[in-house]
Design a protein around this nucleic acid. Sequence first.
DNA 1: CTGAAAGCGCTTACAG
DNA 2: CTGAAAGCGCTTACAG
Lengths: 338, 338
Amino acid sequence: MKKMNKQRVTLQEVAQHAGVSTSTASLVVRNNPRISEATRNKVLQSMEDLGYVYDRVAANMRSKSSNIVGVIVTDISNTFISEFLIGVQTTLESLGYTVLLGTTFDSVDKQERLISTMVEHRVGGIILNLASKSSARTAKQLNQIRTPKVLANRELSDVQCDYVGVDYEQGTWMAIHHLLQKGHRRIAFLGGIKTSSTWIERMKGFKRAHDDENLTIDDSLIIDIVPTREGGKEALAQVMDQPEPPTAIFCFSDLVAFGVMQELSARSIKPGEDIDVVGFDNIPEAELYHPPLTTVSSFPRSIGVKAANLLYHKMNEQDEELQRLILKPQLHIRETST
Amino acid sequence: MKKMNKQRVTLQEVAQHAGVSTSTASLVVRNNPRISEATRNKVLQSMEDLGYVYDRVAANMRSKSSNIVGVIVTDISNTFISEFLIGVQTTLESLGYTVLLGTTFDSVDKQERLISTMVEHRVGGIILNLASKSSARTAKQLNQIRTPKVLANRELSDVQCDYVGVDYEQGTWMAIHHLLQKGHRRIAFLGGIKTSSTWIERMKGFKRAHDDENLTIDDSLIIDIVPTREGGKEALAQVMDQPEPPTAIFCFSDLVAFGVMQELSARSIKPGEDIDVVGFDNIPEAELYHPPLTTVSSFPRSIGVKAANLLYHKMNEQDEELQRLILKPQLHIRETST
DNA sequence: CTGAAAGCGCTTACAG
DNA sequence: CTGAAAGCGCTTACAG
């Protein structure tokens, strides 16, 4: 809590200096056209002379509005998230909003505190990239707050809220279908938290692709673990140490795939030759990795842009219907599965 | 600009419901110990009953304080920056502050607008990772604002301000010394903007390492270009198309090095075998790249942590002396230069 | 330990 | 086209 020592120049002082009323000065700062040019210029001159700085906090307070939007994400060091954030930020900034950022590092507790903080700061709206273990308790908290909100990337059941994300089921189906066509019959599914919507959707696609070929899934090839590089390494170790290891690996995300490939290297197994690997997200590094990673685009920047636009609508029109925007994914076949 | 339709429960209503005065209720929400347990519980109960949400905006306004800190960075998709941002965020959050984030994408205009916006929002302090083309005009703007501020990663002359960064000169010296020891005599310096402090410091180290061996520098091997992957590609093309191409390349950043290596691949030149490459920053990808990149650690997360702590001090003690915190870099020799 | 009144810096009706 | 007064939801002295 910082105390401001230096006192600001107020609009009242500006008005006095310009010889007009405060209300007139207020209309000038807000560019209201019903002020005459002469008066406007006089006031603007006084503002400059005194070094006036507009106080948005006071303005927002009185007008009960806000041009701050809260954005809560799981982890900005994950390229998928930072790309998403860029989409959100550029869009909101061009609409005149500023972003209050919170990072949960996938902790539900921290997320809960951040949501409260945002609401206490009276943000105009919230964009949420939920932690993977978000629960019914989270849903309850979200439903209680009146602030317009949009969920991105990850849904949560029973939350009355707009949503923007990619079609994870279809994306996974495409990846698995591709591997099955190549003749693989033992495909591992590594990473992700089983209770999260992003995992459940992918699993549906995983199942459907197998069903299409009348194949059954070996549950021992499914490893539920945090979707990070570390998680990938550990999951790979678990699955390769089994009596019947897989011949191909579907990873929850590119980050998991990088961990998987790192551990494969450590074991002198060559991705794309000895075993096939597919990721998810198509982050910029995927293409530049060695070998380049087959993966599914999930267009994080577009998701960010759409989430921001959706929130903008929610904030400005009332009583709009809930929307769900689901982007179509795209499979990029590269060297790890050719 | 969002109008709030639903009116909030006010502290006054809470007080009324609890049968105490507003000032008492105010003391309760702020955990003032001079309120009796009985009264406190009565008020807390009323808050819960009415679903009261603390209005930090009103509180900050009246007390002329703020627990929001503005953080302005060049590009969150750059891992160096996102690591820095994580350091800043976690530190500030643990100190009870929330981050208002601005991204300039290295545009000085956008930076100028963001600084104004932050000040209008009455942030308690600002942490700035300046755009590479920041000028005297930027310095002037910064000197005018009374808000406590800390520069990170990049300095700007004539700005009266604390600074946290790494010793770029020493880091570069270490890298170049290493290459010279390996016998290289034609070392290129690719990327970075010549007017920025980060470039100037590196160039000092570049020169000093050459001077130590009584070697002169061939200016045609120095390419001034935006420090991005694209910049790296372009710079490499320029330098390799010269009659006497370099035998080793020092890159302004790891990002530049990745572009350089991508372009080398395209030309079938093998880094670490046909030519040596050294980066700067040691972002996580550097170690995992193929081949792993020799680079200099600049500890972005630590810089973030230290910048946040420094700002915290600036905001809470007055009239402190200006500080410059310069972290020692570290050379990591990997396959691109062995 | 608690209360009544004033005020942070704006905007909002309402008058003229 | 412009002005005087009230108020946004808190906190801050000041009394008691």
